[in-house]
């Protein structure tokens, strides 16, 4: 199985650890793990070391997740990297906003490994097509 280099963007260090732990529990083969504490840092790290997939919170200081997604979609190197929102925002309008911004998937907090696995499978299937 090919391993995926991942990036986790969240202002909470604990949540970044939880996302990585949960991804390992899904059985996903994880390669390099990169972390960022806000959208600005996430964007910079994506540019210098493009990951295979990004998991991104919405509400963060300095640059929120949606602005990071929009900025990534403007960059040639980053526009095709799958980005999954991992956020407490569960409103249907927010989900639509994320999709319109260019996010490929959406997981609401709190989440289980099963829910995460289901969302990742959907995202990766769509990317393969």
């Amino acid at each position: 199985m090919v391993s995926l280099d991942i990036m986790v963007v969240d202002d909470s260090m604990v949540m970044r650890k939880i996302v990585v732990k949960t991804l390992k529990e899904t059985g996903l083969e994880i390669g390099q793990v990169n972390e960022a504490k806000n959208g600005k840092e996430g964007l910079e790290k994506m540019k210098s070391n493009p990951p295979d997939i990004v998991f991104c919170d919405w509400n963060m200081p300095e640059m929120n997740g949606i602005d990071m997604v929009k900025a990534a979609r403007e960059e040639f190197k980053l526009k095709d990297i799958p980005i999954v929102m991992v956020t407490t925002e569960a409103n249907i309008d927010k989900i639509k906003e994320a999709r319109d911004a260019g996010a490929n998937g959406y997981v609401t907090k709190p989440f289980t490994a099963e829910k995460m696995k289901e969302k990742i499978s959907q995202v990766l299937k769509r990317i393969k097509k």
Binding site: S12, M13, V14, M15, I18, T87, T88, A90, T108, P110
Partner: peptide, 23 residues
């Protein structure tokens, strides 16, 4: 600081889930 950070995330998730229910 790990515990402090974690408690921040706990209130974030509880508030966010309550928000979903209120909406």
């Amino acid at each position: 600081e790990t515990v402090v950070d974690g408690i921040g995330e706990v209130v974030n998730m509880i508030s966010g889930d309550a928000k979903r229910l209120f909406e």
